[in-house]
Amino acid sequence: MARILFFGKLADAAGGRSRDWPLNEATKTIDDLVSALCAKEDALASALNEKSVRFIINEMIAPRDAAISDEDEIAFLPPVSGG
């Protein structure tokens, strides 16, 4: 089971800050995961497909085509804003 984290406005769109998600043959990359998550939820689909969204796998920044596996923590980040 992969652990998925949503931050900022993406947590609002997802209706929660985290969820556990079983990965299968069809979800080998972050891009596949986005498609799987988006297939069920329209609000999340438009939020996750914004160009400004960045991805983190096990605390390291990763590109959208990065491989994922079932033990990973995968985070979706909207644009950051501190200070």
């Binding site: 931050f7 900022g8 406005k9 609002d12 980040l77 909207p78 644009p79 950051v80 804003s81 501190g82 200070g83």
Partner: peptide
């Protein structure tokens, strides 16, 4: 440090206003 904290450090902030809520981006 402040310029980079505003645009690169990993924080997300939401303003709760009289007129509603809004996530703030740089």
């Amino acid at each position: 440090l402040m310029d980079y904290l505003k645009t690169k450090a990993m924080f997300w902030k939401k303003e709760v206003r009289e007129g509603g809520e809004a996530w703030i981006e740089p």
